[in-house]
């Protein structure tokens, strides 16, 4: 019987925009929901995010992008996870993402995309209901 399993989430800001208020709000909300949140800060490359996700053995990677580079960065993270054989991590995204881009992101494996106006309670609920292990 497993004891003390906690949901571990990596919160990361890929790319070059310097706006991390949203990521911090989400990090805080997940913390308050009883999760262990590893916050890696601004300007992370997809390679750094994937390496950190592996070392921290997280259940979830949550990324926020406001720069418009989501159609490159999100799929790149998915590709690297796949290359490293990591298929049991739930990946979610957030930020300023146009509606028309969302289907393509889901296609490449981003489980859900939370855009401005989404409530943190919904994010918490989604994570709890969809973690893969």
């Amino acid at each position: 019987m497993d004891e003390g399993k906690k949901i571990r989430v990596l919160v990361a800001k890929p790319g070059l925009d310097g706006h991390d208020r949203g990521a911090k709000v989400v990090a805080r909300a997940l913390r308050d929901a009883g999760m262990e949140v590893i916050y890696t800060g601004l300007r992370q490359t997809p390679e750094q995010i994937v390496a950190a996700a592996i070392q921290e053995d997280v259940d979830v990677v949550a990324m926020s992008i406001l720069s418009g580079a989501h159609n490159y960065l999100f799929p790149r993270v998915m590709q690297l996870l796949h290359e490293r054989g990591v298929d049991d991590v739930l990946v979610v995204g957030g930020g300023i993402i146009p509606d028309e881009d969302i289907p393509g992101l889901k296609e490449c494996g981003i489980a859900e995309v939370f855009t401005p106006g989404a409530s943190t309670a919904d994010t918490v609920k989604f994570i709890r209901e969809n973690i893969k292990r």
Partner: peptide, 12 residues
């Protein structure tokens, strides 16, 4: 029971 683990931020 939650935690914000922020040490890694300076070691990335």
């Amino acid at each position: 029971g939650g935690a914000l683990l922020g040490d890694r931020l300076r070691m990335q």
